[in-house]
Design a protein around this nucleic acid. Structure first.
Length: 217
DNA sequence: CTCCCGATAT
DNA sequence: ATATCAGGAG
């Protein structure tokens, strides 16, 4: 397990590698962001952006998604994958926004997680990006990077990873750290082929050292 | 825990 | 061919 100094070194290295890291889901308001993040489950940001380019032209409001049959929404997001549950969740979410929130996206995480298709990770992203509430959304990249480096334990749940990060990272760095960890995981510490040989954190990374030994033998 | 699921990289 | 992708619901 890394100590506080080592974790600080991780944050600094990531800041140097990805100083401008930020969310890559294209959106122009909180409602579009919720839809985009909901769609992004088990799918790349790039593909989500390709689909939402047309989707957000066609559907501007919660009412718009409810004005067409479920099958039409399914068809409009089909290429994303998991499209049946996502389409159903979108319409259900829109119904809730209209019935309970005057058609607006609620701002607190407690309210956000109650929306269909919105779990802890999506709620954290929306709260952070749309409403400037400090958050660390633990997605596949944040989880993998935290575990490889040794910031948390391999068996930790995503909630435990999130709690550990919130404890170890200063609150005013939560949102940038979250985005830098995603970039670090997406472009450098990749799931399949992590770039350990060129990693500035190799000297403290337990998984990296293990992998480098394998390569040499 | 399983299921949902198409696109893309390797 | 198969692992992986800004996960969430049942």
């Amino acid at each position: 397990m890394l100590n506080n100094t080592q974790i600080r070194e991780c944050l600094d290295a990531m800041a140097e590698m990805f100083p401008d890291a930020e969310g890559e889901l294209v959106h122009s308001n909180p409602f579009e962001l919720v839809i985009a993040v909901l769609l992004s489950a088990q799918c790349t940001d790039k593909l989500v952006n390709k689909v939402t380019a047309d989707l957000f032209q066609k559907y501007k409001t919660p009412e718009d998604y409810l004005a067409v049959p479920l099958e039409e929404v399914e068809n409009d997001i089909r290429s994303i994958g998991l499209y049946r549950s996502k389409a159903k969740n979108i319409q259900k979410l829109c119904r809730t926004l209209i019935d309970n929130y005057n058609g607006e996206v609620p701002k607190t995480k407690d309210e956000l997680v109650k929306l269909a298709g919105v779990g802890r990770k999506t709620a954290n992203v929306v709260a952070s990006v749309a409403f400037n509430e400090p958050s660390i959304a633990v997605d596949t990249h944040v989880e993998r990077v935290s575990k490889r480096l040794g910031i948390c334990r391999w068996k930790d749940s995503v909630v435990e990873v999130e709690n550990t990060l919130m404890r170890k990272v200063p609150r005013d760095e939560w949102s940038v750290t979250h985005h830098r960890m995603i970039f670090f995981g997406r472009y450098h510490c990749k799931a399949r082929n992590p770039n350990c040989p060129e990693c500035p954190l190799l000297y403290l990374c337990r998984e990296g050292k293990k992998r480098m030994k394998k390569i040499e033998v």
